[in-house]
């Protein structure tokens, strides 16, 4: 199995797609090889700012802990994501602008924790053609909703309610919700994201298929309905995030047990989340779910 990199510099860095591609080998994807960490660190670029947030150690410590958890837990996948997403977010304390730089995620996946990416994303079953199971390339280098670390960070960013990461944990509990919703523009509206989570909490949505059906209905309905108007969010304020980032210097490592706290941003108005939760529940009741309504339909038709 791919091992922890031998060479871990003091600071995080940026790794361009072109360079990243050269390290994503068949050997790595199948977990048989390690990343040549010394060579890799020669092709990186420095981060534009030098502050405490980017001390590599802080992230690697989290990875070490989660690796341990992955081995210990019974349902490793969702539990690991639910544990790591808020903690990664609270450790890195990135702005969205910084988080939009794929080079940082490339570096995390290849330079800091290739062992984790392989452990987390290596399928347990062999390929259809009988080949050895391999990690999808996009887990190392890919868009924000597929890359191993970007997807966790963005889940935390889009599903947190101000400083409260609880909804993030819930969202991670339904991997299909994570995979489907994260790629849709509708979750850029906070009350929408929180209403989706609430339906999981209420156990209206239990399975992956249900999550997918709900997500498609919400996405389709959003083509004609402006959720932002029927369920207003509070106005964005840049200051809490700025303060939170500034406080990174003196912050102690995030708690391994209790949920960390995010920036002290205003929470989404409760009424807005309620309005959408009810509306989505109605949508879901109407939506065809694969496997759920087949019988009804065929008997009706």
């Amino acid at each position: 199995m791919t091992a922890r990199p031998e060479h871990l510099p003091e600071r995080l860095a940026l790794l361009a797609d072109m360079q990243a591609a050269t390290y994503i080998t068949e050997g790595l994807l199948t977990g048989r090889e390690d990343v040549p960490s010394i060579a890799l660190n020669k092709t990186t670029e420095e981060l534009p700012v030098d502050d405490a947030r980017f001390r590599l150690r802080r992230v690697r410590d989290l990875i070490d802990d989660v690796m341990y958890k992955v081995q210990a837990e019974e349902r490793p996948v969702t539990a690991a994501d639910a544990w790591l997403a808020p903690r990664l977010h609270a450790t890195l304390r990135l702005t969205r602008r910084e988080a939009a730089d794929a080079r940082l995620w490339n570096y995390l996946a290849l330079g800091v924790a290739p062992d984790y990416v392989v452990r987390r994303h290596l399928p347990t079953t062999p390929k259809k053609d009988g080949g050895a199971p391999s990690v999808a390339r996009a887990r190392f280098r890919g868009v924000h909703y597929t890359q191993a670390f970007a997807r966790l960070w963005w889940t935390a960013e889009l599903f947190r309610n101000g400083p409260d990461y609880t909804p993030v944990v819930v969202a991670c509990g339904n991997q299909d919700m994570l995979n489907t919703a994260l790629r849709m523009d509708v979750v850029d509206h906070r009350p929408t994201a929180l209403a989706l989570v609430r339906l999981i909490e209420r156990e209206v949505i239990r399975t992956g298929r249900e999550a997918n059906a709900l997500a498609s209905a919400v996405n389709a309905s959003a083509a004609t309905l402006m959720y932002d108007v029927v369920a207003q969010d509070s106005e964005r304020d840049a200051e809490p995030l700025r303060d939170w980032i500034a406080a990174a210097e003196g912050a102690s490592p995030v708690s391994r047990n209790a949920l960390p706290e995010g920036p002290e941003e205003e929470r989404a108005p409760e009424t807005s989340v309620d309005v959408l939760t009810d509306y989505f529940e109605g949508l879901f009741a109407d939506a065809p779910v694969r496997g759920r309504e087949v019988v009804e339909e065929s008997s009706a038709g």
Binding site: A99, A100, H144, W154, D185, H189, D228
Partner: peptide
């Protein structure tokens, strides 16, 4: 903005 999933209304 797509790149940052930012949406302000």
């Amino acid at each position: 903005e797509k790149a940052t999933n930012a949406r302000t209304v």
